[in-house]
Design a protein around this nucleic acid. Structure first.
Length: 513
RNA sequence: GGCUCGGUAGCUCAGCUGGUUAGAGCGUGGGAUUCAUAACCCCAAGGUCGGGAGUUCAAGUCUCCCCCGAGCCA
């Protein structure tokens, strides 16, 4: 069984913003966690590259649409590389094989009688690429979102007969766990309950898109193109594009992670399309929240957008990953606050976790010949830190199960806090000065080092680099596997410890990002 | 206009089917300590639980109305 996980395919109208980075980072953590558990993972991301908006943006820049898409999607690819995103695929909807997949998919849907012609007329926003509901007689209406004039359109388009799938979709979204988080479900339920209406799947006079076979002049509109990118992405490099192949290549998706704004399309339109094409349905759709910045919506007009590349350059991967995944409840809206960002990174990562390892390793080296001390009774599962570690592991597992990345982070952090407290209570720096307490000190330090190792293992999906640095400080090599690496007492007494180096530098930011 | 989800300590949030003095982290203030990245550990703050009305022996937790924020639909 392959765990197939997708981010949305990002629209290349503009370069990546923090929101896309957030989604991708979260997916990366999920993908890493699954891999650690030994699952076979197919992590898909990519770009959606067709549409009128892109055509016009390219024209405005004096580029061909293809050249524009090449440039922007390359920017995405490089961005994800510099964030060390572990995606297995990067699909572009201008990939030649994608055209073939779309055509095959459409052929199935059409053969199923689910494509009809319909007239669509009204005011159209090019930026939204959608028809608006302003009355026909409106004078110079403008789009409330983009504050740009609407264009009058009167087109003959192709429609997908979504209305035929009313019942099946109702059943689907009623399933527990299909739509997550749970509190988004009702919104979709109500939408469906109003009665599903056929939706248009083509546009005319829009050359920058995939032509609809047998309907000259029509190109596919976003959903019949972009969503199918999830399918094309499954193909391996040498594969001929063939829908038949997909079940062997990881379809259906186990999880689509998306922003809450496109939940409807993924939870209603997409499943209906798949039903029509005779393909299995994704297992779950997770709609996460949006990020604001210091309480304000991010936008070009306000001039407060946070560029992911710049954020990375100034702060580093671990810091940003930790802040976004640990502090923002995955699924709810969140606010990026610079001071809080700095506080959390410094407190959690540098002070609590980094310093725990540093202080303990330092004592172990000083009093036990630069090595892990003899464990004595500390290997017992009844040791208080063993119990704390077990609890952290359980909390972590439950958290990952429900995609509560925040709780997963807190579980690891809590273990470090407990270990710091234990150290203070035991005060080995006092005991060591007393006669006959050598064994006790050894056991205490062993327990704390082992707890630090577990913290590192638990952190691996969230902040992989920090985790690796911690494990290196503990002379552990190789990928930590879950749950094997979480067994208490794996740390080998006598193992040499390298000179302690801070594993996480404190973040100092004088200027606003 | 209809619907959905939120509105709990300065900040970010926990509070399951209503029931002892409403909790955590950060920030702030005080104390302790020296192994450590001036790090760690302990203690403290008294927040009308958005506002109002109601149900109940008892409501942050249920009902209704209103206000604010986000989103979906029209």
């Amino acid at each position: 069984m392959v765990f197939t996980l997708t981010t949305p395919l990002y629209y290349v109208n503009d370069r990546a913003h923090l929101g896309s980075a957030y989604t991708t980072l979260a997916c990366d953590a999920i993908a890493r966690q699954r891999r650690l558990c030994g699952e076979s993972v197919l992590f898909i991301t990519g770009c959606d590259e067709h549409g009128q908006k892109i055509q016009r943006t390219a024209e405005a820049a004096g580029l061909s649409p293809q050249a524009h898409c090449d440039a922007v999607s390359e920017g995405y690819r490089q961005l994800w590389q510099s964030w060390q995103i572990s995606n297995d695929r990067f699909i572009r909807t201008t990939d030649p094989r994608h055209r073939s997949i779309v055509e095959q998919f459409f052929a199935r849907v059409e053969a199923n009688g689910d494509v009809i012609e319909g007239r669509q007329q009204g005011w159209y926003c090019v930026a939204c690429e959608e028809f608006k509901d302003d009355p026909h007689e409106a004078q110079d209406p403008e789009c409330s979102l983009h504050r740009r004039p609407l264009e009058w359109r009167d087109e003959l388009n192709l429609f997908f007969r979504l209305s035929r799938y009313q019942h099946q979709i109702e059943q689907l979204i009623r399933q527990d766990g299909f739509i997550q988080p749970q509190n988004r479900r009702r919104e979709v339920e109500n939408f469906v309950a109003q009665g599903l209406r056929d939706f248009s799947i083509s546009r005319v006079n829009l050359p920058w898109g995939i032509g609809v076979p047998g309907h000259s002049g029509h190109t596919f509109y976003v959903w019949f193109d972009a969503l199918l990118g999830y399918l094309t992405a499954l193909l391996e490099p040498g594969d001929e594009p063939d829908l038949q192949l997909l079940s062997e290549r990881g379809w259906p998706a186990s999880l689509h992670v998306i922003g809450k704004d496109i939940l409807r399309f993924h939870a209603v339109y997409w499943p209906a399309m798949l039903l029509s094409a005779g393909l299995p349905l994704p297992k779950r759709v997770f709609g996460h929240g949006f990020l604001t910045r210091e309480g304000q919506k991010m936008g070009k007009s306000i001039g407060n957008v946070l560029d992911p590349q710049q954020l990375l350059d100034k702060c580093g991967r671990d810091a940003v990953r930790w802040y976004l995944l640990r502090d923002i409840p995955f699924g709810d809206d969140g606010d990026f606050q610079q001071q809080r960002f700095i506080d959390l990174v410094n407190n959690d990562l540098a002070n609590t976790i980094g310093n725990l390892l540093n202080r303990t390793s330092s004592m172990a080296r000083r009093w036990f010949a630069d090595a892990v001390p003899p464990a004595g009774g500390a290997k017992a599962s009844s040791h208080p830190l063993a119990a704390a570690a077990l609890q952290a592991q359980e909390l972590s597992e439950q958290a990952w199960e429900r995609l509560d990345l925040r709780a997963a982070a807190e579980a690891a952090l809590q273990l470090a806090i407990t270990a710091n407290g234990f150290l203070n209570d035991q005060a080995p720096w006092k005991l060591i000065k007393q006669e006959g307490q050598q064994d006790q000190v050894a056991a205490d330090l062993y327990a704390v080092l082992e707890a630090a190792r577990q913290v590192a293992v638990l952190l691996a999906p969230l902040v992989p680099e920090l985790s690796a640095r911690m494990l290196a400080q503990l002379s552990q090599d190789g990928e930590p596997c879950w749950p094997a690496a979480l067994r208490w007492g794996l740390l080998q007494p006598g193992l040499g410890l390298p000179e302690p180096q801070p594993v996480m530098a404190r973040l100092e930011l004088d200027d606003p990002l």
